[in-house]
């Protein structure tokens, strides 16, 4: 996983898990790597991973069972909520950026439609 070093890394770790849950790559009950494994896997300070995991526990996204590991605890309801939240954030960011370039809302809509058309033929937005 490549991080954007201009953003806090623990937030990017959380976002990565959120995306995987939203896309149902990870489901409730799935075991995720231990903090140590994950730190080694993505070459990140173990304390940063710990912070991300702790926050995810606080959000009830994951739970750690003593001696067994860490598991996804987010259910369907939370998945939908997270999807809405993340999509909303992306949209807000997009709109904000477009407006700052001077585009009127109507123009943004037109451009969106135009851009989206080729994608309707089965192209996946989904990139890993």
């Amino acid at each position: 996983m490549d991080f954007d070093n201009s953003q806090p890394i623990y937030m990017q770790i959380i976002d990565e898990y959120k995306k995987n849950i939203i896309r149902s790559k990870l489901k409730k009950g799935d075991k995720i790597p231990s903090q140590r494994e994950y730190a080694q896997m993505v070459r990140v300070n173990p304390n940063t991973v710990q912070r991300a995991y702790r926050e995810m526990e606080n959000m009830d996204m994951v739970e750690t069972l003593r001696g067994q590991g860490t598991f996804i605890s987010a259910g369907e309801q939370m998945r939908e909520q997270m999807a809405k939240e993340m999509a909303g954030k992306v949209m807000k960011h997009f709109i904000h950026e477009m407006r700052s370039l001077g585009y009127e809302d109507a123009m943004i809509m037109d451009m969106l439609k135009c851009e989206l058309e080729p994608m309707e033929e089965g192209e996946q937005v989904d990139r890993v």
Partner: peptide
């Protein structure tokens, strides 16, 4: 992490 958050910049 705090510096990244505050400045929206990488350490480099």
């Amino acid at each position: 992490e705090q510096l990244r958050m505050e400045r929206n910049k990488s350490l480099v």
